[in-house]
Design a protein around this nucleic acid. Sequence first.
DNA 1: AGTAACACGTGAGAC
DNA 2: TGTCTCACGTGTTAC
Lengths: 223, 223
Amino acid sequence: MDDELLSPCSSCFPVSPPFGQFEHQHHQFIEFAPARSRSNGFSETSSVPAKSEDAGDLWPAGSLLSPDSDLSELPAPSLPASTESTPRPAAKRRGRKPGPRPEGPTVSHVEAERQRRDKLNRRFCDLRAAVPTVSRMDKASLLADAAAYIAELRAGVARLEDESKQAAAARWDTRSASLGGGGGSIQHFPAGDETLEVRMVGRDAAAVRVTTAAGSALTLRRA
Amino acid sequence: MDDELLSPCSSCFPVSPPFGQFEHQHHQFIEFAPARSRSNGFSETSSVPAKSEDAGDLWPAGSLLSPDSDLSELPAPSLPASTESTPRPAAKRRGRKPGPRPEGPTVSHVEAERQRRDKLNRRFCDLRAAVPTVSRMDKASLLADAAAYIAELRAGVARLEDESKQAAAARWDTRSASLGGGGGSIQHFPAGDETLEVRMVGRDAAAVRVTTAAGSALTLRRA
DNA sequence: AGTAACACGTGAGAC
DNA sequence: TGTCTCACGTGTTAC
């Protein structure tokens, strides 16, 4: 349900249209055809502030996360060449063969390589959607920004969970004088392997901590 | 001071050795020479659990973060070809010229392209060092894992700073609007003219406030 | 003039 | 056997 196989990353990257039957006519149309216009052909990707001072070169990158993009893992949806009707009927090629291999796995190879390139470009697009701040639009800068963003996020997570742990445990730390002031106002209620600690905070508020062997829900009841 | 420009990502990626003067002898030595051995040529990158069930293909990826890797931004450190001593002394090429362009910007182009590839591979290596869990070793999987890891980190940051905000606002400041936030996490237990409010702070701590007309003792019991 | 970035096809290697 | 991934060189386009 969540991963439709249509519109994976439409108009996001070149993704090479089916590309009919001319085999090496030296790609002139198929180049600008996909999205090679190279001039700001994307709508809006995320919160990139459109830093257009130097970012003249950019790849389209328009859509959202493609659904895992693993649908291109299947061998070949439309592989036209398979030892059937040679693409060039003219020139029966009566002389020697064109090379060591007649034309077997060569024409399939370019298609596989094309699919591999498309998959990699989709992954680039996905990563670009995941990184909020991309300095420039080329792939190398995207990789660098992704690595920097990951480092920044990890630092943020470390800082946050550290200060969260400190803030959570600061009420029970005896030497932390900022909270309760005195250290003797904690009341312990040990019950078997569980303990219930209650500390008054202010006049009408109390902090309660229950510690148990296994994780158990904390339910309180007036008595 | 913190970023030396030597040893950027040594033995991390192919990075194509200087590559003397043969221009298109069809790369046979230069291929396995860098690191193309394709069989686990890296030491230890991070905490990858060596999932060797299918990951037979991997790129070296050995070192740590390269210091921004922008040292390869300079035009060309050792560009051997510049209209001086044609690379192939034999075959004086007395006939027609080899093409529309004699040999001007062609030999420089391959070097620029090589540097571009190396820079991109260094960025891949840096990103690979930043992502702790990489399922497989190919580039597409690395990009997917990086995007997934970024999403996971962002979710963790959101959760952490949310509960940090809750823990910080758990002093029951009535006028601070930031306390409510979601507003739904406070549980009220009205009992006549008294109310008991319980808010979870962290995982094993709760803040409790009881409001009553007259001062009454607060006794809690596990249920 | 000239650099930078991209997609393409192709040979090669590892499963 | 075929499939997959990669690096390479080349043509092209936009600054």
